[in-house]
């Protein structure tokens, strides 16, 4: 299928709802983090939101780590 239209791709193919629901913004040990539920039902850290540069050096908040 070839589309030739001024509409944006997301208008034609809406993003599936589960893409939104899998990702959550939670507070984990006082830091705001984005987590994504993986196939095993565990929450995996996607992004850390902090202004303290030292938090980014903390092993606990490295992207990809599993949150217990």
């Amino acid at each position: 299928m070839i589309l030739y239209t001024p509409l944006s791709e997301t208008d034609i193919f809406p993003t599936a709802d589960n893409v939104y629901t899998n990702r959550k913004c939670i507070t984990y040990e006082g830091k705001t983090v984005f987590v994504e539920k993986n196939n095993n039902g565990e929450y995996q850290l996607v992004q850390l939101l902090s202004t303290d540069p030292q938090d980014y050096l903390n092993d606990m908040y490295t992207p990809g780590s599993i949150i217990p």
Binding site: T51, D52, P53, Q54, L57, T62
Partner: peptide, 12 residues
């Protein structure tokens, strides 16, 4: 990852 002391400058 290297560890460093607390920073007085924050990054946004």
């Amino acid at each position: 990852i290297p560890q460093a002391p607390d920073s007085n400058i924050h990054v946004l």
